[in-house]
């Protein structure tokens, strides 16, 4: 049954550009990008209880890294560019994360918030490199001499990368590191008592989370095609938090569902203009009060049937 469902899902994802109108192909790419960020954020927040309000900053680093690599070294295949973007983001994430280890809860959230601001500020002021507030046009990525210049091509790139990263996240929970994450999620104190080094695994979670978000940033750069520091504000970071809260903390399928629902809602509500934050705020509060565990937990009984 499970294999059938996965097969059907895979077929649906592959067939999508051939059956859906062009705009929905673009929208699906955005969902994939957001899903990767949500998984990355969830690895940090859902497993090791570290809430970040700065993931827009990580996304920005990955996006600018990929864009600048493509501009200055167009010969590099797009997949390598994405990996490098992710790696650069992970390095920054670790450099920032290691000293933040000692900080618990609220402090870490606020430190990440500050991080997001600093990243936007740095991008704005490194204008020789980033073109600052004017924004940076991202050329099409290339793979084996073939430019990814259509929505469909970029969608397939995003789908392939997402598939690999989802598989990685799902399998992570089967490894030693993943089990340590789960132990930390259940009880930090108990995990520590059973010999799990809280500090080491929190750092690891920070690095992995930043890597996922950095790769998503690269995808974001190619899918959107234009970057500016205004793109990566604190409200974007809050959107990512909404995704994992709505989808369900500590759940990979939940992250994907959360990303899909938030992205689609965002799209529908674009016409409602300034009602949009009102509705998203209400969703956030409603989830916290009435749907702890998010969609992942709410839908679990359906899955069992």
């Amino acid at each position: 049954m499970r294999r059938w469902a996965l097969g059907a899902l895979g077929a649906g994802v592959l067939a999508w550009p051939w059956v859906a109108p062009r705009y929905f192909v673009f929208l699906a790419s955005l969902i994939l990008v957001n899903a990767v960020v949500a998984i990355g954020l969830n690895l940090l927040s859902g497993y090791t209880n570290q809430l970040s309000f700065g993931h827009a900053g990580f996304l920005a680093i990955g996006a600018y890294a990929a864009a600048l690599l493509t501009i200055h070294a167009p010969a590099i295949p797009v997949v390598v560019t994405l990996l490098l973007g992710g790696a650069i983001t992970a390095v920054v994430g670790l450099a920032f994360g290691v000293p933040c280890l000692r900080l618990g809860g609220l402090y870490l959230s606020m430190a990440t918030l500050a991080f997001g601001f600093v990243v936007a500020e740095v991008i704005l002021n490194l204008d020789a490199l980033t073109r600052g507030a004017d924004g940076l046009r991202v050329p099409a990525g290339r793979i084996a001499g073939w430019a990814l210049s259509t929505d469909t091509a970029r969608y397939y790139l995003a789908a392939a990368v997402t598939a690999v990263l989802v598989a990685g996240a799902v399998n992570l929970t089967r490894t030693r590191v993943g089990r340590a994450f789960l132990a930390i999620r259940e009880s930090e104190v108990a995990a520590q008592a059973s010999g799990v080094s809280l500090a080491a695994y929190r750092t690891a979670a920070f690095g992995v989370s930043a890597f996922y978000t950095g790769v998503a940033g690269g995808l974001f750069a190619f899918v959107v095609g234009y970057l500016s520091p205004d793109a990566f504000d604190v409200f974007l970071s809050v959107d990512f938090v909404v995704m994992i809260i709505l989808g369900g903390l500590g759940s990979v399928p939940g992250s994907i569902m959360g990303a899909a629902v938030v992205t689609v809602l965002h799209d529908w509500l674009a016409a409602f203009q300034n009602f949009r934050p009102l509705i998203f705020g209400a969703i956030l509060i409603a989830c916290m009060l009435f749907m702890p565990g998010g969609m992942a937990r709410a839908l679990r009984p359906l899955g069992r049937r």
């Binding site: 809430l51 309000f53 609220l106 959230s109 409200f235 809050v238 938090v241 809260i245 934050p277 009102l278 998203f280 705020g281 209400a282 969703i283 956030l284 509060i285 916290m288 009060l289």
Partner: peptide, 10 residues
């Protein structure tokens, strides 16, 4: 914290 972030948006 998350609830008050939601409130802030609203």
């Amino acid at each position: 914290l998350i609830i008050t972030v939601g409130l802030s948006l609203m």
